[in-house]
């Protein structure tokens, strides 16, 4: 198991290299850089010096390899085109905020969403289930910016619990972004765990446990819940991607100094290095959380644990039709 985890974590490095290569190709081949502008409008001695200074005349692969080397070995993402400061300082500060939002989002989603789903499943088709269903349907259909507006209006304007605008030095400032981010995730996890719990409660082994005379609580929370959580855990990767999407909107709306708002700003000012840095870090976050999800999944699902302990890492699919038969069928 440990070996598998390490293997998967090491695999992140080639994935990162490929991601950087794709981004580099896209930016290099299609998007024009500020250097192209200089070549058109500038000229003479100054142009040569600028090219020398930014090493702009080097070919694509030299640039790519130097960038990858700097990022992976020195964690150096280059300098900001606007301030000439090292990007890593800015990214470091912003990644902490985004990670904080993501972590509380995932935590709140699981802690509130799963119990809601379980309660709804146990009381299937009763009033409480209906209410939870309607609320989660509404929450999953309302776009996150509308939710942000509603949360601000309710908490800051009508109830006056929190200030509308506040500096991000104060921890109070993170409350509204966190709530907004969690609501969408809670809705989807509640729906998913409800469906999976209902399916589990219809299994014959539950009837067997009930007829054995076990208490209803034991049947539900000790036996059914354990199995119902397996598909929920396998969807954690998707949940994190969904929440990461949410951070863009939430950070943009509440002006949180995070990766999403930085990226949106950099897109506006066409700063390549900032975009590259943000994208690489987000991909890394996703890759690491995906590995962790897979490991967690294999821990709770004995079938998968068995498969990996035998040493085969890929699911073998049943042979469709032998090749010779297929050839005959084609003739």
């Amino acid at each position: 198991m440990v070996k598998y985890t390490i293997k998967r974590l090491v695999m992140i490095i080639p994935i990162t290299l490929v991601v950087i290569l794709v981004l580099f190709l896209m930016l290099y081949l299609v998007a024009g850089s500020s250097m192209t502008q200089l070549r058109i409008y500038g000229g003479g001695d100054m142009l040569d010096r600028v090219f020398e200074r930014f090493k702009a005349s080097e070919n694509f692969f030299t640039k790519y390899i130097r960038y990858c080397y700097n990022v992976i070995v020195h964690l150096d993402f280059g300098r900001s085109s606007a301030t000439r400061l090292r990007l890593i300082g800015e990214l470091d500060y912003r990644v902490k905020n985004t990670m904080l939002l993501l972590a509380t989002g995932v935590g709140a989603t699981l802690l509130i969403g799963i119990p809601l789903g379980v309660v709804a499943a146990v009381r299937k088709n009763r009033p409480l289930d209906r209410i939870i269903n309607v609320i989660s349907l509404l929450l999953s259909a309302i776009p996150s910016y509308s939710m942000a507006i509603a949360v601000t209006l309710i908490l800051a304007v009508y109830l006056r619990i929190l200030p509308v605008v506040i500096s991000y030095i104060s921890p109070l400032a993170y409350i509204m972004p966190m709530i907004t981010l969690s609501l969408g995730g809670i809705a989807s996890i509640a729906r998913m765990s409800r469906a999976s719990m209902i399916e589990e409660l219809e299994q014959p082994y539950i009837t067997a446990l009930r007829s054995k005379g076990l208490r209803e609580r034991t049947v539900i929370y000790k036996h059914a819940l354990k199995n119902a959580l397996v598909p929920v855990i396998s969807s954690l990767g998707g949940l994190i991607a969904q929440l990461l999407c949410g951070t863009f909107v939430v950070e943009h709306f509440f002006n949180v100094p995070g990766l999403g708002s930085y990226m949106l700003r950099s897109v506006g000012s066409r700063s390549h290095l900032e975009i590259l840095g943000c994208t690489i870090i987000m991909t890394m976050i996703l890759a690491v959380t995906n590995v962790l999800t897979d490991v967690l999944y294999s821990l709770v699902n004995p079938q998968i644990k068995l498969r990996y302990s035998r040493g085969s890492s890929r699911m073998r699919l049943p042979p469709v039709v032998p090749a010779n038969v297929r050839k005959e069928a084609a003739e």
Binding site: L23, M26, L27, V30, A31, A241, Q242, L244, C245, F248, M263, L264, V267, R270, I275, T279, M282, L286
Partner: peptide
């Protein structure tokens, strides 16, 4: 994430 993909593609 969809938004990341769209932003990067649009940018490039």
């Amino acid at each position: 994430p969809v938004i990341l993909l769209v932003i990067v593609t649009e940018f490039a």
